[in-house]
């Protein structure tokens, strides 16, 4: 019986590859889009226009306050009612990019706010324009501070991509769900699914930790 299960699993190999490919494609596209939009939103959010800043803040709060699963359902089932036809893949990209943009917006905004005031004053005093101040002085420093949480956020978003399996997209998690119907060994099947995610996420987790350590935490670790 174990042998049969093993054969069943081997037979699912192409499906598993497809699922992994879907997870990677979905994550990659959404992370790139989300990063671009998130940076733009973060810069505008810390800008001088109070109204726009509030609107972005309210949207980010809505997205951070509701489960991703509910967001996917809303996008997938409601946009068609508004006359926007979309397949599950597009819905997944929209939902995940939006989620990424909102979290990255807050990370970037926090990074910008953490740049010491003296830096902006020094840039002001030497006659740099607002655009030059942001480009030359504020953003490079904000980027440096934002990098570790940004990488950590990428890990969370890749994992969140598993939720799109709920609208029938054949990603890694969905493949596990399909295979387990034929090969009734949930422990084995989802352990393998887990390994798939682990291979993608773990290097990023290590990278985030390394970046964090390199930021040089002011106080060293305590030996208790």
């Amino acid at each position: 019986m174990i042998w049969q299960q093993f054969q069943g699993l081997i037979g699912s190999y192409p499906l598993a590859l497809r699922g992994l490919g879907m997870t990677v494609a979905l994550s990659l596209i959404s992370l790139v889009l989300g990063t671009l939009i998130g940076f733009a939103l973060g810069i505008v959010r810390t800008g001088s226009n109070q109204l726009i800043s509030r609107v972005i803040g309210a949207w980010v709060d809505l997205i951070r306050g509701t489960p991703f699963l509910v967001q996917i359902f809303l996008i997938f089932f409601i946009l068609p009612e508004l006359g926007i036809e979309l397949d599950a893949f597009t819905a997944g990209i929209i939902a995940l990019s939006n989620l990424a943009a909102c979290f990255i917006c807050e990370i970037v905004a926090a990074g910008i706010r953490a740049v010491p005031n003296g830096q902006v004053e020094a840039a002001l005093a030497s006659g740099l324009s607002r655009r030059q101040r942001i480009q030359q002085v504020v953003l490079p420093q904000a980027m440096r501070m934002s990098l570790p949480p940004l990488v950590g956020q990428y890990v969370l978003l890749i994992k969140d991509s598993s939720v799109v399996s709920a609208i029938g997209l054949t990603d890694l998690t969905r493949v596990g769900w399909l295979v387990v119907q034929r090969v009734p060994n949930g422990l084995l099947v989802f352990a393998i699914v887990g390994v798939g995610y682990f291979i993608v996420c773990y290097p990023l987790i290590l990278l985030a930790r390394k970046l964090e350590r390199r930021m040089g935490t002011a106080h060293g670790e305590v030996q208790l």
């Binding site: 890990v155 994992k159 969140d160 991509s161 598993s162 939720v163 399996s165 890694l172 998690t173 596990g176 769900w177 387990v180 009734p184 060994n185 949930g186 422990l187 099947v189 989802f190 352990a191 699914v193 887990g194 995610y197 682990f198 996420c201 773990y202 987790i205």
Partner: peptide, 19 residues
């Protein structure tokens, strides 16, 4: 931390009966 909650949930949901 390196795997999604949904996969963990299915791991238990489909896996525990196996045990």
């Amino acid at each position: 931390r390196a795997t999604p909650l949904l996969a963990q949930l299915y791991f238990l949901y489909f896996g525990l009966p196996r045990l």
